[in-house]
Amino acid sequence: MTHKVTTEWKKNVKFESDNPSGHNLFIDLGEDNGGKGEGYRPKALMLSALAGCSGVDITPMLEKMKVDIDDFKIVIEGHLTEEHPKYYHIVTVDYHFYGSDLNESKINRAVDLSVDKYCGVMEMFRRFADVQVKSHFHNS
């Protein structure tokens, strides 16, 4: 399978990129780097792709496992190298699960399957970064 995106320059350092889903997004830099802040930052967009990839693995698995959660969020921090080209060399992925009676063993199983088997973006990150993963359970 091949994915194709087309990214068009919109002047200055702003670009518009399509997606196989049919949705478009804007990429831009902050004012401190010559942009106007009218879009996603390229490197941070990679972190969003990582969270989205893992999230779309985990939620259907939890549904199949009949695990009820009230809420779920993924917080990712990417630590950049000092030298150019700057890239994420350490990435922390924190999974936060909220609910009244969380089945931690099944949730951990779903996270492990995403991290170790299904999330291709996670595997790409592992090629260039130390990826650290942790689950947090917030029982209400």
Rank of each mutant, 00 (worst) to 15 (best):
T2D: 14
V5M: 14
W9E: 10
K10F: 01
K11F: 03
K11A: 06
N12L: 09
V13M: 06
K14F: 00
K14G: 01
P20S: 10
F26L: 12
G30H: 04
G30F: 05
D32Q: 09
N33L: 13
G35S: 06
E38S: 05
A49H: 04
A51I: 09
A51P: 03
S54M: 12
S54C: 09
G55S: 12
V56P: 02
D57E: 09
D57V: 06
D57Q: 04
M61Y: 02
M61G: 01
L62E: 01
K64A: 12
D68W: 12
D68S: 15
I69C: 09
I69Y: 13
I76L: 14
G78Q: 04
T81K: 15
T81D: 11
E83R: 06
E83A: 14
E83C: 11
P85N: 11
K86N: 09
Y87R: 15
Y88V: 06
Y88L: 13
Y88W: 02
Y88E: 02
Y88P: 01
T92R: 08
V93A: 03
Y95D: 00
Y95T: 00
Y95R: 00
F97E: 01
Y98N: 11
Y98T: 08
S100R: 10
L102M: 15
N103R: 13
A110G: 10
A110W: 01
L113G: 01
S114M: 03
C119I: 12
M122P: 01
R126P: 02
R126W: 08
F128K: 12
V131K: 04
K134V: 00
H136R: 11
H136G: 07
F137V: 02
N139I: 07
